[in-house]
């Protein structure tokens, strides 16, 4: 079983090195970093840590980076694809927990649900709001649609048809899971919130932008 961890990164030179080291310590050695046109030295830092690094020539947003990363992982013959955030908010120990139902063949996709444990209240409201938006637009309710820790089986990853560019990708993935009749499980994880990871997350304004983009995505179908 080849497990490939995909990390989208945009100007994360301060944390990306540590994220890769932490993953290596837990024996996740197949790591693909997609540097989404960073202006800092994220690319060099990730390369020095021994990750496979792809660099976008221009910034395309989280969606573009994840899409490139997942395709790259498939090219690397991954059996299991894990997406992981570059801001140190995930605990590498949680991968095992989230991966288990996929490994057992119980589901095709699993998502780490941060909401029940340790998410600050304002974030929780915003995230539940986006979960509701995802439900209203695409007809599937999932806890913590916006979580960056996801595990896909190879077959599931091959089925995904992802088109959006930015933060709206997280909800688009949920839409694809529903449209392709993939089995999904949400597994509780404990996020590590620091001032840094909080500053990297979505603002209220960002939330409304996601809503707007998702409505357009819905119309374009």
């Amino acid at each position: 079983m080849k497990v490939v961890v995909v990390i989208p990164a945009y100007n994360e030179e301060n944390t990306i090195g540590k994220v890769i080291q932490n993953l290596n310590k837990k024996n996740y050695n197949n790591i693909i970093v997609v540097d989404d046109g960073s202006s800092d030295s994220s690319y060099e830092v990730a390369k020095n840590e021994g990750a496979i690094v792809y660099k976008h020539c221009i910034n395309r947003g989280l969606g573009g980076a994840l899409n490139t990363g997942i395709s790259a992982a498939l090219l690397e013959d991954a059996d299991i694809i894990v997406t992981f955030d570059a801001d140190l908010q995930h605990n590498p120990n949680d991968i095992k927990k989230v991966m288990k139902p996929v490994l057992d063949g119980e589901v095709d996709v699993a998502i780490g649900n941060r909401i029940s444990k340790g998410m600050p209240l304002t974030r929780r409201i915003g995230n539940i709001g986006l979960d509701l938006v995802t439900y209203l637009l695409f007809g599937i309710y999932v806890n913590d649609t916006q979580s960056g820790l996801r595990v896909f089986s190879r077959e599931a990853a091959e089925e995904l048809d992802l088109r959006t560019n930015r933060m709206e990708i997280s909800s688009e993935i949920i839409k694809e899971i529903k449209d392709k009749n993939l089995r999904l499980k949400s597994v509780p994880i404990k996020p590590i919130y620091t001032d840094y990871s909080l500053s990297k997350g979505n603002s209220v304004f960002g939330g409304f932008k996601i809503l707007y983009k998702l409505i357009i995505r819905r119309i374009m179908d």
Binding site: V34, I52, Y54, K55, H56, C57, I58, R60, G61, G63, G64, N67, T68, S71, A72, L75, R163, T164, N165, K213, I216, R217, I219, M220
Partner: peptide
């Protein structure tokens, strides 16, 4: 024009992805 622009944005991402995967 909003919808058309979104389509163009998506196409740009597709092109960037192709270039990136080819270069590595």
């Amino acid at each position: 024009s909003t919808v058309r622009m979104e389509k163009i944005e998506q196409d740009i991402s597709k092109v960037v992805k192709e270039i990136t995967l080819r270069k590595k």
